[in-house]
């Protein structure tokens, strides 16, 4: 379990308290600038909060390789500076373990259906293949936690669902999965739990149906929207905004 206790990061997060559990998918949602990525980076130990505590299984968040072995982090920008082969890219996930981890790399490649492309240079991959390869990099480290920042943003529907299926498989195997998601319908249908942030503070939290209720969406996003369909297969229809959102106006002033 990862717990954050009134963590604050200047200008970005103010006193957020929440707990994340293994074996389920938690989505962090919120308007632009709400502090979603910052919260994820605090969980990953990449941003040191100015106030508050972060605890992993009741102890202080470890540092360096020890933390890296337990928490896998997938940044929003899927940068790959050099044209490595897919297998070499995935093997970077073994760096915290200091071994080649050939078995784990092969398993990770198989888990995201990229075993056939192991020898291909990354530059020749499509966007969807590349996103899967980067996820496999995290899987190869066999972390207890996968924290991913907008892993689905650049993907088409088919690949979004494929990646979510991989994440669900990891979660079913006991991994804690925390995702920053912009797409509320994906969060509604695929997350077990949702945290809604607004201007650095927790605005709602709970099962998707509650945390992303029409009332919350109206309050936080300033959009009158309706959910259609059945639980687990929801679609969101927006009916109109209420002009400039207070949080963005606030940011401009600051």
């Amino acid at each position: 379990m990862i717990e954050v206790n009134s963590v604050a990061v200047r200008n970005r997060l103010g006193a957020v308290t929440a707990a994340f559990e293994r074996g389920r998918i938690t989505a962090i949602c919120g308007p632009n600038g709400a502090g979603k990525s910052t919260l994820l980076q605090v969980l990953a130990g990449l941003v040191e909060p100015e106030a508050g505590k972060v605890r992993l299984d009741g102890a202080r968040l470890p540092r360096g390789r020890e933390r890296a072995r337990r928490i896998g982090y997938l940044p929003q920008v899927g940068e790959v500076a050099w044209d490595l082969s897919v297998a070499r890219l995935v093997a970077l996930g073994r760096l915290p373990h200091g071994d080649r981890g050939e078995v784990q790399v092969a398993e990770a490649l198989a888990a995201v259906d990229l075993a056939a492309l192991a020898g291909r240079p990354v530059s020749t991959l499509s966007g969807g293949e590349r996103a899967r390869a980067l996820l496999a990099r995290v899987l190869a480290g066999e972390p207890q936690w996968i924290l991913a920042d907008e892993p689905l943003a650049a993907l088409d529907l088919l690949h979004q669902l494929a990646l979510l299926a991989h994440l669900r498989a990891a979660s079913d195997a006991g991994t804690g999965v925390v995702l920053v998601l912009h797409d509320l319908a994906l969060a509604m249908n695929h997350a077990d739990r949702v945290l809604v942030l607004e201007r650095g503070r927790l605005a709602a939290e709970g099962a998707p149906e509650e945390a992303l209720s029409e009332a919350v969406i109206a309050r936080v996003w300033g959009v009158a929207a309706r959910w259609l369909g059945e639980p687990g297969a929801r679609a969101l229809v927006a009916e109109g905004g209420r002009g400039p959102h207070p949080s963005s106006a606030n940011r401009l002033r600051r």
Binding site: Q41, A68, G72, Y73, P75, E79, A81
Partner: peptide, 10 residues
């Protein structure tokens, strides 16, 4: 190769 924040997370 994966960027600064990914490197730190590793």
């Amino acid at each position: 190769t994966l960027g600064e924040s990914a490197a730190r997370s590793l």
